[in-house]
Design a protein around this nucleic acid. Structure first.
Lengths: 117, 117
DNA sequence: CCGGATCGTTACGGGGCCGTATCATTATCG
DNA sequence: CGATAATGATACGGCCCCGTAACGATCCGG
């Protein structure tokens, strides 16, 4: 069952949510960071630096740095893989789950406000 | 007529489009720039620096700098207001319209792919 | 006509992100 | 064991963005 959305609706939805994000001083994630965060919280674990880099089509340092800054914000945590100590497993946090949930609220609320176009 | 979308669908849509944006080397707009671009192309002209700053809840230099970089990309143009030469009128461009249309395509295409959740 | 208000821009200091190249650590295989 | 591969982190130079404060240009009211 697909979600039907018209181009004008899509643009208005995108704009309203982005206006909310800009006004929301707290949320200061870049496009890359947002993609990483949502991948971690929507796809099945385990998540690794290498896996995320391949998934997003970016280099590993991008992931490492994004995890650094998102870690400072408390949105994710890192843990060494005990079975292969070269790997780092990225874990979810309560704050991260709340942030994702907040984003979902924003999008659904703005979608609900959209008139037909 | 509102657009009904479930939280899980919203998050998946957001993630897929953001993955597209990350992979699309060309599109390199920040959240602020995206909000500005869509405001210019979705709301009725005329648009001014001061108006956009108030609309987004940011300071004027933010708008000036965003217009600088978006101008380099050919997405917008500036013109002095002839009736009040203090004002600058922001104008749309063909390239900007295409970029907005491309974003609409991305969102609608990803929405169509979404299964019910 | 002139002082104050308004508009957009610029200067400054600070911080973040980028890609490339390199590094330390760990695993693997002969 | 020792060489090689793989993983994530780090160093570097460069670029962009931010907020505050100041600036020149323009309009307006007395």
């Amino acid at each position: 069952m697909a979600l039907e959305i018209k181009p004008t609706q899509a643009l208005r939805l995108w704009r309203e949510v982005h206006l909310d994000l800009v006004r929301d001083t707290q949320a200061d994630l870049s496009v890359r960071q947002t993609a990483i965060l949502l991948t971690i919280y929507l796809e099945l674990p385990p998540h690794t630096v290498r896996g995320l880099a391949a998934r997003l089509g970016v280099t590993k340092p991008v992931i490492t740095r994004a995890l650094d800054s998102m870690g400072k914000l408390g949105l994710v945590t890192r843990k060494r893989d005990e079975f292969d100590k070269r790997n780092v497993v990225i874990q979810r946090t309560v704050a991260g789950a709340l942030a994702v949930e907040h984003l979902a609220d924003l999008v659904t609320a703005r979608a609900r406000e959209l008139g037909a176009a």
